[in-house]
Simulated assay, not measured.
Amino acid sequence: MATPFALGTFSTGHEPFPGLVVEDRVADLSQALPWHPATTLAVLDRWAGALPELRELAQHAKNWLDLASLRVHAPIAPRQVFQSGANYRQHVIDLVVAHRPEDDQETEEQARARAAELMDRRAREDQPYVFVGLPSAITGPYDDVVLPSWCTQPDWELELAAVIGRPAHRVTPENALAHVAGYTIANDLTARDLVFRKDMREIGTDWLRAKNAPGFTPLGPYLVPAEFVPDPMDLRLVLKLNGETRQDESTKDMIFDVARLVSYVSQTTTLLPGDLVLTGSPAGNGLHWGRLLRDGDVMESTITGLGTQRTRCVAE
């Protein structure tokens, strides 16, 4: 039976290096592998060939480092980031209610019924909603998150992120998961006040400003290979704000599962090794609670089997 392991990026005050994690120990892959990969992305670029070597190292590696002595960075520096919106049924219903115009005559019950029908139709027509994020928004799983001065409604969005292990172009949902190397945790922060353009409603959403400030995507702590995630559609996501649970949901509530999302993105573009496909956030965001992020807030995010990230908010 294979020894469970994960991948990450670490440093000791010098250049970051890719590491293999087994419990509380880390093997420096830049030294342990004969081809000396400098980054986790380099490992993913030859994922099929690297896997047997990683399994062997998990059992027999020497010169282990103490995990507690290392700084943990985001596990992967992706080339591309694809983000799924409106993919958890209850979350979308809550957002529809929260974003109703002030002069809207629709009752909350009517708004929820309309949103539920919209989600059912999207599922029937197989139309996920995906947009592009910027790799420059990624930060480490324990780094401070700077809240920009221009953002008045910063919000949290805990998400399961699929990490691509081999190129995928026009793959079917049935074959899509064969292109996924593993999974990690993402907290896809959003400037709620900037999601919709106020200057011209017809333009629609402004994901550049709403999603991509530096540090708005804490990632990790680790990339857990798919072989150690038996069912990505049966994972529990929990986000706590200052110790209080705000999001607590199963990936079962997704409208479009991981395979359908990966397949959908691949119909338009080519997914590359290391690319991230964020799968949407469940109900329980700050907008729902009427409590947005503030200076000093601490977010703790956990997904079954993927570890925990802990980030503190700091006002710019």
Rank of each mutant, 00 (worst) to 15 (best):
S136H: 13
R89M: 14
R112G: 10
L160A: 03
H73C: 06
L272T: 01
L219I: 14
D143H: 06
R124S: 11
H179Q: 09
P167M: 00
F131T: 01
H169F: 04
T152R: 11
T279S: 09
T308M: 00
R197Q: 10
P214A: 13
T270S: 10
W35Y: 12
G85T: 14
R114C: 06
F17I: 01
V97A: 06
N242V: 07
G204H: 11
D234H: 10
R260G: 11
D45A: 09
P37S: 05
T268P: 07
H288N: 14
T172F: 08
Q110S: 09
H288R: 15
S84I: 05
D231R: 04
V262S: 06
V130D: 12
L158H: 01
T270P: 03
T268N: 13
G290H: 09
W207K: 04
P173D: 04
A210I: 09
R260M: 14
T190M: 13
N187D: 15
G280M: 01
L147R: 03
E15D: 13
S250G: 03
N212E: 11
W64R: 05
S69M: 07
F216L: 05
H14A: 13
N63I: 10
Q153S: 07
A178I: 09
R294I: 03
N187F: 01
Y142C: 12
E53D: 13
K240R: 15
A50H: 06
P148M: 02
H36D: 06
P282V: 15
N175F: 07
Q90N: 12
P52G: 07
A259H: 04
V146M: 12
L271Y: 00
L194K: 06
P232N: 00
Y129N: 10
R121V: 14
F17H: 00
M233L: 13
D155H: 03
D126G: 08
W289V: 12
F17L: 01
T268D: 05
V132C: 10
V26M: 00
A137K: 00
T304C: 14
H60E: 15
N187P: 02
V72C: 08
E300N: 04
E202W: 12
W64M: 03
K240A: 15
D257L: 05
D188W: 01
L57D: 04
Y129Q: 13
L194C: 07
T269A: 04
S250E: 02
A77R: 15
L158E: 02
K211V: 01
L292D: 15
A137N: 01
S136M: 12
L67V: 05
D120S: 15
S11H: 07
N63A: 12
Y264F: 05
V229N: 04
P173M: 01
G140N: 02
L51V: 15
R121P: 11
T311V: 12
D45H: 08
E102C: 10
A137F: 02
V277P: 03
T12R: 15
L293D: 01
V97N: 04
